[in-house]
Computed example of a mutant assay.
Amino acid sequence: MKILVIEDDASTGAYIAEGLREEGHCVDLIADGADGLVQAAVGTYDVMVIDRMLPGLDGMSLVKTLRATKNATPVLFLTALGGVDDRIEGLLAGGDDYLVKPFAFGELSARIAAIARRPPFQDQPTVLTAGDLRMDLLQRKVTRAGRPIDLLPREFALLEHLMRRKGRVQTRTMLMEAVWDIHYDPQTNVVDTHISRLRGKIDKPFDTELIETVRGSGYRIVE
């Protein structure tokens, strides 16, 4: 594979490049974020390994720029920032995987191989729409008729699930398992409560209702 490594720490960069070359890969090593963006734009790579903290342009901004220009090359973020929020932020910015320093080279190699096998980034939509409702998955923003709508994380996840299955009925059991990762408990009304909150934000202020109740079945998003 042809791999671009963007890492400003000289010893870490050399360690990664040497190990990958020993495995038979062709590696370009860049130490600056801005230079790395240019190289990523003009070169053709199978995978990119990008540090989050870079001079010139940070890794997060670099990847967001690549995704905005439809560059679908799989990205593995490599960083010392290992908190859950940091990992989530990196993945939402367009990263395909996230490896925290210090790391074992064997794991790095395995993760590179894994993301190289995944479907390309552009196969997955980053913007979902239903009528005048728009959800930007990368920016984590929702608007309707151009008006911004503030959603809590669980509300966002619930709306995303419905919008990805636009026009298809989603039962309460499906929603509980997909959004809350638990089997449906008939004693809880958590789904109905969150649907009601969503309606209050994306339906009630507007003339047309997009969240439809299918009596005896569940809910769905309609155009």
Rank of each mutant, 00 (worst) to 15 (best):
T173A: 12
G94K: 00
R144K: 10
G200A: 10
L138R: 15
S109Y: 03
C26G: 15
F77S: 05
T208R: 13
F103L: 07
I6D: 07
T193F: 13
Y15M: 14
M135N: 00
T171F: 02
A68N: 11
R199D: 12
V127S: 06
R199T: 06
A130G: 05
A80G: 10
V179K: 02
L158Q: 02
A80P: 05
L151P: 03
V142L: 09
Q124T: 15
G167L: 06
R199L: 14
D28Q: 15
Y184L: 12
V42C: 14
K141T: 15
A68I: 10
W180L: 04
I30G: 08
I202C: 05
L81G: 05
G90R: 06
L175Q: 01
L159K: 08
I50K: 03
A68C: 12
P148Y: 04
F77N: 03
G82N: 03
K204M: 14
E160S: 12
E209K: 13
D203K: 10
L128H: 05
L210G: 01
P125Q: 11
E7Y: 03
T171P: 01
G95A: 09
E18Q: 15
T129A: 09
L159D: 00
I195D: 00
G167R: 01
I211R: 01
E209A: 11
L66M: 11
K2L: 03
P125F: 10
L66Y: 01
R134A: 14
P148R: 01
R118T: 09
Q170L: 09
P55Q: 13
G200K: 15
D132N: 14
D132Y: 09
M60K: 10
I221E: 00
V142Q: 02
L152M: 14
R154M: 13
S217C: 13
A114K: 09
G36W: 00
K101T: 03
V222D: 04
P119T: 14
Y45W: 04
L4W: 01
I211L: 02
D97S: 08
L162T: 00
L62W: 03
G24L: 05
Q139F: 07
I202S: 02
